Amino acid sequence: MLNNAPAQVIHFAYYAELRAAISLLSSHGIRISNGDNSYLERSGASKVSSWRTMRTHTVVWKLWEAWAKTPAAEALLLDQLKILPSVTIGDLKASVGRVAANPTLTRWALDLSMGSEHDARNKASYETPTARTPLQPMRAADFEFVRDLWALAEPNGHGLRFEQELVRYLVNAELNDDTVVAGEAARTAWLRRLIDDLEKSTGTPRATLESFFDGESSSSPIFQLAFSPDLNPSNMVARAFFLLRLATLMPNGALTSYPATPAKEWLKDWLEHVGLFDPTDGERPEDKWMDFEHLSQLPVPPMPLPAQLTATPSRSTDTHLLARADAMLAWSTSL
């Protein structure tokens, strides 16, 4: 996106989604391996099934659709994502109708279905659309989109800002739905009841909840892009980012449960190998956020873009950091 290459954006966003889905499925013992798929039983025995020879793209979507309906999927989205130290997304389920795992997970993985989304990916990957359509200049909105993603990557001590913004989006969508809440007085009463319920069920101080659900706080615009069925680059990158966030939860949970696992050292070695962690400087992997925390506040460079993204040494450095979404692994896992 920072190179103003929209077809490549669609291609890589699709494969980011595919890899995130494969990662989540593998954490449940499902192995996707190019026509030689299998799964592990609880006993540890490897088994094959009717979908053994299905091609990767087809089987991932079918398995994802089935997995998104399971209690395990609901627990991942609702119980592991915290918006406050004592409040999970699941704590809002009884009060907020839009807090539902299956439609959310299915919506975010839309691009993996074998419909128009798949066709869009194929066209971006294997055709040359720029030979038939005029080239478009990069817009300031393209830069702003990438920049604003980094606000969602901010750690807050119990997770990322992503889950807090997700809840704000869902709550605001409910409040602005006239079929659910009609009129300003009704909206105020609905929000008051939500805070009452959360205070009782979680023990969170009312002042903390009122501050979080401040009526003047707006959710990130990126959620609207992710939930929209549009197939623009920003829509697909938003969905890929969200699936990648979910994909970090399963290994994070395993690392917390098994703190002595050698997987921690492997991940640290990987972060060192890709230039995101230096074990000799005495810093912890989670400290890496300090190199990235300024990105969400960057001003839009002057036109023309993308040329101005590398016009000065400082902009070149920031542009490099803006493109390193893999750095999120350093502070979103228990290393």
Rank of each mutant, 00 (worst) to 15 (best):
G203V: 02
W331E: 02
W61F: 15
S38K: 12
S95I: 08
S26N: 14
V274S: 08
A323F: 08
V60S: 02
S23Q: 09
L112T: 00
S211D: 13
T310F: 07
A182M: 09
K123S: 14
T310Q: 12
L84N: 05
D291C: 05
R206S: 11
E265T: 15
R161P: 10
T310W: 09
T204Y: 10
R107P: 03
E74L: 04
P233R: 00
P285W: 04
R315F: 01
S116A: 15
L160S: 10
M290Q: 15
R139N: 10
G29W: 03
S86N: 15
L78E: 08
G115W: 06
I222C: 05
E199P: 01
R168K: 10
A100Q: 12
V48L: 15
K82W: 07
E65L: 11
T317S: 14
T202E: 03
A327G: 06
I83P: 04
R42Q: 13
P313T: 01
T312H: 00
N102Y: 13
T130D: 14
L149E: 09
A186P: 03
L194E: 03
A13R: 02
P85M: 05
A186T: 07
Q8C: 12
M54W: 13
G159Y: 03
L329W: 15
A240T: 03
R19P: 03
N37Y: 04
N34C: 12
R52D: 09
P129H: 02
D269R: 15
R324D: 04
L255G: 00
K69N: 09
S43L: 02
S27H: 11
N232F: 15
V48C: 13
P262G: 04
H320Q: 15
A140L: 05
P221L: 04
L160Y: 07
N252R: 08
Q224L: 12
E144W: 09
T130G: 11
M250W: 09
D318T: 01
N4L: 03
P259L: 02
T310Y: 10
G115Y: 06
K200S: 12
V9E: 10
A21Q: 00
I195M: 02
T256G: 10
G97H: 08
V181Y: 03
A94H: 10
L81H: 07
A186F: 04
R245F: 14
D142E: 11
L321D: 06
R31G: 13
P129A: 06
P6M: 01
G97M: 04
V300M: 07
G35E: 06
N235D: 08
L322E: 01
T261L: 08
K264M: 02
F241Y: 13
A153P: 06
P299E: 08
A140C: 05
D326H: 11
A186G: 07
P301S: 05
L271M: 06
P6N: 00
A151Y: 09
T104N: 05
R239W: 05
T56A: 06
R168M: 05
K200Q: 14
T312V: 00
A260M: 12
F213A: 03
E165I: 05
H320T: 15
T248Y: 09
E199S: 11
L276I: 01
G157E: 06
M236I: 13
E272R: 13
T319L: 02
T312Q: 00
